[in-house]
Simulated assay, not measured.
Amino acid sequence: MGARRKTETYKGLHSPSSWASHSPSSLLPFLNLPAEELAAVIFGCDHATYNECVTQLLFGLRASHIIYVKNVRPGMPLLFFNYIDKKLHGISEADSYGEMNINPYAWTDGKKKTHFSAQARIQVRC
């Protein structure tokens, strides 16, 4: 005999269930949040890159992600998602502003340029 509560489903641009119906270019307003609206950034990895990211204290994404990585600022929470085992690691903290090519050879053999050039230095917190 509890009170019935009215629920509401939001289907706007920021709703994950609505992302599939949008083209990548229509998501740009969502991905280009101003620095004051960006609370944290999730970086991705696999088993091969996880240890290097943690030992090098550097997270990186493909260059196309610079649109919001450039809004990373020191002290911002950063999370790390392993796509293989579906684990979210964190919380890390940005130790630099996000920028291009902090280490242009990260995640390579040192001879080729990285594919993950939108980067931020980190400090591990938890």
Results as ranks from 00 to 15, higher is better:
1 M>D: 05
1 M>I: 10
2 G>W: 10
2 G>M: 10
2 G>S: 15
2 G>L: 13
4 R>W: 11
5 R>V: 11
6 K>T: 11
7 T>G: 00
7 T>D: 00
8 E>N: 05
9 T>F: 10
11 K>C: 09
11 K>S: 11
12 G>M: 00
12 G>T: 05
12 G>D: 07
13 L>E: 02
13 L>S: 03
14 H>M: 05
15 S>A: 15
15 S>I: 11
15 S>L: 11
16 P>K: 02
17 S>T: 09
19 W>D: 07
20 A>K: 12
20 A>Y: 08
20 A>P: 02
23 S>L: 07
24 P>M: 06
25 S>N: 05
32 N>H: 05
33 L>Q: 04
33 L>E: 04
34 P>V: 08
35 A>L: 10
35 A>K: 06
36 E>W: 15
36 E>S: 11
37 E>K: 15
37 E>I: 10
39 A>E: 11
39 A>Y: 07
39 A>H: 07
39 A>L: 13
41 V>C: 09
42 I>C: 04
45 C>A: 05
46 D>M: 07
48 A>S: 15
49 T>Y: 08
50 Y>E: 05
50 Y>N: 00
50 Y>M: 11
52 E>Y: 09
55 T>V: 06
56 Q>E: 09
59 F>N: 07
60 G>H: 02
60 G>S: 03
61 L>I: 12
61 L>M: 13
61 L>V: 07
61 L>C: 09
61 L>E: 08
62 R>N: 09
62 R>W: 09
62 R>Q: 08
63 A>K: 13
64 S>H: 13
65 H>W: 14
65 H>D: 12
66 I>Q: 14
68 Y>W: 15
68 Y>C: 14
69 V>L: 01
70 K>H: 02
71 N>H: 12
71 N>L: 02
72 V>F: 01
73 R>K: 14
75 G>P: 15
76 M>C: 07
77 P>H: 14
79 L>H: 09
79 L>V: 07
80 F>K: 02
80 F>S: 02
81 F>E: 06
82 N>K: 07
83 Y>R: 12
85 D>V: 13
86 K>C: 13
88 L>R: 04
90 G>C: 01
91 I>C: 01
91 I>P: 01
91 I>Y: 05
93 E>L: 10
94 A>R: 05
95 D>L: 04
95 D>H: 03
96 S>G: 08
96 S>R: 04
97 Y>G: 01
100 M>D: 07
100 M>W: 00
101 N>V: 06
103 N>H: 14
104 P>R: 02
105 Y>E: 06
105 Y>R: 09
105 Y>Q: 06
107 W>Y: 15
108 T>P: 09
108 T>D: 03
110 G>M: 10
112 K>G: 00
113 K>F: 06
114 T>V: 00
115 H>A: 03
117 S>E: 03
117 S>L: 05
120 A>L: 04
120 A>M: 01
121 R>A: 04
123 Q>A: 12
123 Q>Y: 14
124 V>L: 15
124 V>Q: 11
